[in-house]
């Protein structure tokens, strides 16, 4: 474990807590894409298949349980909770996430570290995580006013993968044989997808104006 990876995991945890806080306290999911939340639940479900078979560390297991629990409970809140579901913007959140899942699955079948069920699922989860934010970014473009919690949520979600990139660089130089092209490329693509959001988020913060993305 290195400081970059710890910072990345904590930032990722913060993003989830910010979202749960928003949904649980103000009983609203306005501006949040259910499609993205469903994709994240699928990402964790396919990435943490080894949670009970390969023990890495207590930290690793606890964090996996937190990410699995939070992502599925957010989907449950947005689909089932009578108050929260009313604030879900079904008409605007129309990204066909099936068109993200299928290419990722096909790519995982072709590009993986080993052609085993677990490794294909692991590669699938990495490709899917890279694009899972797209429905949320599309929704942000459509809903003009972005409330602070939603902006913070997306910012933290993008920042966590940026920290991970520093972690991969650090591990590449400090650990022999640490080479994971699949992780590195999908992680880089994922971070780049946030680039324009970061640009507008930083500018809104610098000029102290409300965050809004150009149409």
């Amino acid at each position: 474990m290195n400081i970059f990876r710890l910072a990345g995991d904590m930032t990722h945890l913060m993003s989830v807590l910010v979202l749960l806080l928003k949904i649980h306290t103000i009983k609203s999911c306005a501006g949040i894409s259910l499609k993205t939340q469903e994709l994240y639940a699928l990402v964790f479900a396919t990435r943490y298949l080894d949670i009970f078979t390969d023990f890495i560390s207590v930290y690793n297991t606890i964090m996996k349980l937190i990410f699995l629990g939070s992502s599925f409970s957010i989907v449950w809140y947005m689909r089932r909770h009578k108050l929260v579901r009313r604030s879900y913007d079904k008409e605007q959140d129309t990204f066909r996430h099936f068109f993200l899942v299928l290419p990722c699955l096909l790519l995982a079948l072709v590009m993986n570290e080993k052609f085993t069920f677990k490794e294909v699922m692991w590669a699938f989860s990495l490709y899917l995580e890279a694009v899972a934010i797209l429905p949320q970014l599309v929704l942000l473009q459509r809903t003009k006013n972005i409330d602070n919690l939603t902006g913070q949520y997306v910012f933290l979600l993008g920042a966590y993968r940026a920290f991970y990139i520093f972690n991969w660089i650090y591990r590449y130089f400090t650990e022999p044989h640490y080479v994971h092209w699949i992780t590195w490329i999908s992680g880089l693509v994922q971070t780049l997808l946030y680039a324009d959001f970061f640009y507008y988020y930083f500018n809104s913060w610098k000029n102290n104006v409300k965050l809004h993305l150009p149409a």
Partner: peptide, 10 residues
């Protein structure tokens, strides 16, 4: 076991 690749990151 050598067969499996251990992914230690979240």
């Amino acid at each position: 076991s050598p067969g499996i690749i251990l992914h230690d990151e979240l």
